[in-house]
Design a protein around this nucleic acid. Structure first.
Lengths: 209, 209
DNA sequence: ATTGACATTGAACACGCGTTCAACGAGGTT
DNA sequence: AACCTCGTTGAACGCGTGTTCAATGTCAAT
């Protein structure tokens, strides 16, 4: 029954929440105007009254997701003073990885959008921004590492190091999503630690097989 | 005009090639029976005569791609004897990364399939197999590293180390695809090298900021 | 009370998709 | 020459989609 009900912002939010529920359940492939309208308990017409098109809904949903759920939280909390920079970076990586793996649903959706972004400029921009923000979480620790050993990282920037961390985590994410039973985050982190922080005794001994 | 023309295998191959051309141009979203038929110069009916359904075509195309193009080549070439295992692994990683970045088209398509695989069991199986084979390329070097310093990698397997390498490369792939102008493979590799192979002098000096 | 703005509805439209199928024609076989 | 097999065609069907729009009801202002 037609009639005024909720102010625009409320309706929009209701519909966005419904859209997210649908997308979390059926992914972007199952996100149709009718499905969202049904989930929100409104008509298709109303959905397109508040969002000018399905495309608009898609973009607004991504925006909403990025600001409401993914990768929020206490990003830049520093470790206790005296922690070696490498250990600090590893802590950040470990925390982020654990956090990511707890949100499979959202990460899968994010990758749906990532693929969509390949063809959709507006969405690509949003995804890029999100990943750059993500990478930035590693910058402080990365910066500390580089300024501790400038000669070791000659020619490299904190961004480069942060990018490598982001790549590692993103790769872990793709592996878990594809094959959750086979990917083991703890072992991956342990491997990374063993690779990056060498046991002091072995650093000077070039042992041929 | 109807009539007999080519033996089954030839027609199938023609159509698969056409399908790949379409997919490389318009991605999986643009891969329709009509588009492929037009590209192959045959009728829609013939396409579904040789492939029982679009789904079958999709699966066969992925199979064809995996065996014909992606990640083939001289995987297991050993480095000169005496190369330290870590250096060997880094060489393999570097080569694979470079190889991957040269095939953006195919990698993008592969990710399309990866997303599809989230919902499509048969495709998921194929993708998993491909990624496991990919990971296996790192195993020999990873094994050498671990057996050189068993105490350093205690509790870890060559698979774990190979998985970390694969994660790094896959993460690099997602970054390039999303943002080719910003991702720099050389700097990423240089960063990885600096992280993993420490300068001997710095290994014993815990320098607080 | 009357009006006007506007949120809301759901039927209808146009389009593209995967799939079906009766008809057709070029071989090989008899 | 007649026949059969089967690769081949393209029109047609059914379905699901995004989008439009005239109609409707509610609320605030007059």
């Amino acid at each position: 029954m037609p009639g005024r009900k909720a102010p625009e912002s409320v309706r929009r939010d209701e519909i966005l929440r419904a859209a997210y529920r649908v997308a979390a359940r059926d992914r972007l492939g199952g996100l149709t105007t009718r499905a969202v309208a049904a989930e929100a308990g409104v008509s298709v017409g109303l959905l397109l009254f508040h969002f000018e098109s399905k495309d608009g809904l898609l973009v607004d949903l991504l925006d909403w997701m990025l600001s409401h759920t993914i990768v929020a939280g206490e990003m830049h909390r520093r470790p206790p003073a005296g922690t070696p920079p490498i250990a600090w970076l590893l802590i950040v990586v470990e925390r982020d990885l654990a956090h990511l793996l707890k949100q499979r649903e959202r990460v899968e959706l994010f990758y749906d959008y990532w693929v969509l972004g390949t063809r959709h400029p507006v969405i690509r921009r949003l995804i890029r921004r999100a990943l750059h923000r993500y990478r930035d979480a590693f910058r402080p620790a990365a910066h500390a590492i580089i300024s501790e050993h400038p000669e070791r990282y000659a020619g490299l920037s904190a961004d480069d190091l942060a990018g490598v961390c982001a790549a590692f985590i993103e790769g872990c994410a793709t592996q878990t999503i594809l094959d959750p039973s086979r990917f083991n985050a703890e072992r991956a982190m342990a491997t990374l630690k063993a690779l990056v922080v060498p046991s002091p005794s072995s650093a000077l001994s070039p042992v041929p097989l």
